[in-house]
Design a protein around this nucleic acid. Structure first.
Lengths: 159, 159
DNA sequence: TGCAAATCATCTGCTGTCAAACAGTCTGTT
DNA sequence: AACAGACTGTTTGACAGCAGATGATTTGCA
């Protein structure tokens, strides 16, 4: 038997058992794998996941403060600083002080940002298809609905 | 009231839309919330999540090398070092050199570790019930099955 | 036998995230 | 007008996760 790599040859395969009885662990491990795939995709494409989400939201709902972006995208304020820094430096957004409230910025997407967004957006369906190819369309729908319920519940209680 | 279009406009609620079309983001955000809950629970209980998993696996399959523990529990080798350090210091495991291969340890659970595991294990069902209370039993089953498929697929390809 | 390659546990450095502190700005009360 | 308190963006420090290098040990092969 020359199978030298992969799959602990003990035949134990303990992980599936664990995942079956610990739904939280299964969720975290699956998420880590997906996040990793997303990060690889984003790195290859040259636009960070957070940057993509910010551009997408700005394009969808118009100029926002960093605060609003943080809350809606579930990205920490202090992380949002760096994301907007990078986007601004690349010319994809402008940061202007809101004249009515000079504490906040009015982060606005530029034409350059819209072009970059369209470019990145075009690759998302293929990425999702690739990442979730193990699931049937029905299963993806189930997963989406279940996660929505979890997220909705989690959004109210822990704060 | 002329410029009321700022600050906490509840009309937007952009996140649900995002979660619906970006399954990867929904998964990551839900996982983050669950991981946070697990961490809070573990901190209150006094036994880290990783430490719990190690004790549980050692109890289930017997003495293991740190390598095997790392692979089966999907915890990085260098993180496993600290986990085993803490468990050893608390007297819950013993680290003995494997006499047949002195490169590796035979990490073994102690009686103290077994007692500690039983204590922590007793609280897991309530934690899971609390964390996933938004889901019906049927939905939990669906989620478990879907995550298992994702994990199985992800375990082979990305490496 | 002797030596190169592989393996195990560990350590170091890097990256990304979160918590808390901070300065500037706004709002409300007096 | 003056002040206290809340909000926004930023910086700093702590910490987990991961990649790569290291030391000790085993294995494979000539």
């Amino acid at each position: 038997m020359a199978t030298t790599t992969r799959t602990t040859d003990r035949g134990t395969a303990y992980f599936p058992r664990l995942a079956a009885e610990r739904l939280d662990i299964a969720l975290c491990r699956a998420s880590a794998a997906v996040a990793r795939a997303a990060d690889v995709h984003a790195t290859e494409e040259g636009l960070g996941v957070g940057q993509h989400l910010v551009l997408q939201m700005l394009d969808a709902v118009g100029p926002c403060s960093q605060q609003t972006l943080s809350e809606e995208l579930r990205i920490d304020r202090s992380v949002m600083v760096g994301i907007c820094d990078d986007l601004e430096q690349a010319g994809h957004v402008r940061r202007e002080r809101n004249p009515h409230d000079r504490r906040s910025y009015a982060v606005t997407i530029t034409d350059s940002g819209r072009r970059r967004l369209a470019q990145a957006q075009a690759l998302i369906p293929a990425f999702l298809e690739d990442t979730f190819q193990a699931l049937t369309p029905a299963e993806r729908g189930q997963l989406s609905a279940i996660l929505a319920k979890l997220l909705q519940a989690g959004a109210s209680s822990p704060r």
